[in-house]
């Protein structure tokens, strides 16, 4: 069941120059939310930004009835959203998309840039099942990094930066943990990164799931704008994704 409700901003924190985190408190009990699902955020009803912005769910706290989102300022919408204050209302359509299937004993979660957001909730779900996931996070440099404290509480964390300022230097596919064997790889991040990870995983017969970030309008399968080309034709990223089995994706 999808919902459309106002949430109250309960916390707002800038994590680095372009990432910020919003904690949003629901006014009614949250429905069951899967890791990898997303929300469509209405920027501001008075704004000149028309469409909602699809943002993946970073974390869910059923006790406090709060959702967390990590948002990167990339365009007008996310810039305007960054001006919201604690106590203000924001409208969400949620929870959307298929989400990740939490399975496997030895799993590697790979995030790049703001794509690390949904992997926290996924790592927590693995942890709750008694699986400590390997989490590999890629950033351009130290400036683009965010605090990894929460990841460290529930997973084994590895970092790659392109300039080598933190962790191993180079791409995530060059990180030493990437070459260790895992049952399943889960990834979210820039398309070239996910494509390289998927191709590598398939070559080594490792199951791999990628969460895509295609441009989206409705978020509920009505407009057919966000399609991904797959071995079974065009599929809506919003309803049949955002998580796809890498073997089905035609990049």
């Amino acid at each position: 069941m999808k919902h459309c409700d106002n949430f109250i901003v309960s916390e707002k924190k800038f994590l680095n120059q372009s990432f910020y985190k919003l904690k949003l408190k629901a006014t009614k009990p949250l429905p069951e939310i899967k890791a990898g699902q997303f929300v469509e955020v209405q920027v501001n009803s008075d704004s000149k930004v028309l469409l909602r912005r699809p943002i993946s769910i970073n974390d869910v706290d059923y006790q406090t009835n709060e959702l967390s989102l990590i948002i990167q300022t990339v365009g007008q919408g996310t810039k305007e959203l960054a001006k919201i204050s604690i106590g203000e209302e924001v409208n969400l359509v949620y929870p959307l998309g298929n989400g990740f299937e939490v399975k496997g004993e030895s799993v590697l979660l790979i995030g790049g840039g703001v794509g690390i957001a949904p992997l926290l909730y996924l790592a927590k779900q693995f942890n709750a099942k008694g699986v400590k996931a390997d989490v590999l996070l890629g950033f351009r440099s130290q400036e683009q990094m965010i605090s990894l404290d929460e990841f460290e509480k529930c997973a084994n964390v590895y970092v790659s930066t392109q300039d080598g300022s933190v962790g191993e230097k180079g791409l995530v596919t060059e990180n030493s943990i990437f070459s260790k064997s895992h049952d399943i790889i889960y990834t979210c991040g820039p398309t070239p990164m996910m494509k390289a990870i998927s191709e590598n995983a398939l070559k080594n017969n490792i199951e791999c799931y990628a969460s895509l970030e295609n441009k989206m309008a409705c978020g509920i399968g009505a407009c057919l704008c966000c399609v991904q080309n797959t071995t079974e034709g065009h599929k809506c990223t919003c309803t049949e994704g955002p998580v796809f089995n890498a073997k089905d994706i035609i990049w």
């Binding site: 028309l50 295609n214 441009k215 989206m216 309008a217 407009c223 057919l224 399609v227 080309n229």
Partner: peptide, 20 residues
């Protein structure tokens, strides 16, 4: 019909353009 290839949508001031 499979429709057009992606990208099929972009937002413009107070509007959107679709090529579904």
């Amino acid at each position: 019909r499979e429709g057009n290839p992606a990208p099929r949508m972009c937002e413009t001031p107070m509007g959107m353009i679709n090529a579904v």
